[in-house]
């Protein structure tokens, strides 16, 4: 029993001495290297953000460089991912910028006065009915002003200002079923009516037989219209329907000049109407 006790005591002293020696005397570089290899291999996450200076003491410089290279590699990979997101965002902004420069460049050549407004709200249930823009009475937007957009270098009619608020306005689109625009067909200037159908196509109605319309003809706003300045492109005839049985008029489908569903900015035309016409408009004719 006492012999067993002695053996235990000797073993305890032995192990405690070894442990104390390891603690007190600076461990050799090889020990630190092994420690670092094992620790980094099995628990790499423990080293992220660890206080490295004291931990790496006595470790050979070449191994420290390997370790630091791995750490730098991880950090740079993370940074690359962040940069890729920023690059994608920058590309999108550059494209947007290019588009806006094109639009504003074209608007400088427009023969109407007005201001640009951004489309801020669309109703998914009434996509071809109305949308909102970010300019209102505070910006000088008048009621019933015409709104046009530019696409592929060409200006086309989009709608008119239907409601004006201080900070924003509601635009009724020409594709709205309650919208109608007096239009002029082709070079001869035969007048007709463009009506919205609630879809991307418009309907050209009340076209007299003498007009002899055909596919591809361009439709413009008519000088007879009080609301819209003359000469704004509305669209091109897509398909002609011969005269309906009860009436002596032909009709046609018209594809708008601009894609109404994709409009992001509109140019609101402000023109000085004679007072008597303005009063009539404001009274809601």
């Amino acid at each position: 029993m006492s012999r067993e006790k002695d053996v235990v005591n000797y073993a305890a002293v032995f192990f405690i001495s070894i442990a104390c020696l390891l603690l007190i005397f600076p461990s050799a570089g090889i020990v630190h290297k092994i420690r670092l290899i094992c620790s980094y291999s099995f628990y790499p996450s423990l080293h992220y953000g660890a206080k490295y200076d004291y931990y790496l003491r006595n470790v050979p410089e070449n191994f420290v460089r390997v370790l630091k290279t791995d750490q730098d590699n991880r950090r740079l990979e993370q940074k690359i991912k962040e940069m890729e997101i920023l690059v994608n965002r920058a590309n999108a902004l550059a494209q947007e910028n290019e588009r806006l420069v094109r639009i504003t460049g074209i608007s400088a050549g427009l023969s109407w006065q007005g201001s640009w407004a951004r489309v801020t709200g669309k109703n998914p249930h009434d996509w071809y009915g109305f949308f909102f823009v970010d300019k209102g009475s505070n910006d000088g937007v008048p009621l019933h002003a015409a709104a046009i957009a530019v696409e592929d270098g060409k200006a086309g009619l989009v709608g008119r200002i239907f409601e004006v608020y201080p900070e924003f306005s509601k635009v009724m689109l020409i594709t709205n079923p309650i919208s109608s625009v007096i239009s002029s067909v082709g070079d001869r200037g035969f007048e007709s009516l463009i009506e919205g159908k609630g879809t991307w196509l418009l309907k050209l109605n009340y076209v007299s037989e003498e007009a002899q319309i055909s596919e591809g003809m361009e439709i413009f706003t008519s000088p007879s219209s009080m609301l819209f300045p003359a000469g704004i492109s509305i669209g091109r005839i897509n398909r002609v329907y011969q005269r309906e049985s009860s009436m002596n008029f032909a009709s046609a489908d018209v594809a708008p000049t601009v894609n109404i569903g994709a409009v992001r900015e509109v140019f609101i035309i402000t023109r000085g109407l004679p007072d008597r016409f303005r009063k009539l408009i404001e009274e809601g004719i």
Binding site: A19, C20, V31, R35, C38, Y43, L46, Y55, R57
Partner: peptide, 11 residues
């Protein structure tokens, strides 16, 4: 001690 990140070895 081998697996730790602390400065002590043998603790």
């Amino acid at each position: 001690d081998l697996m730790g990140t602390s400065a002590l070895f043998g603790g």
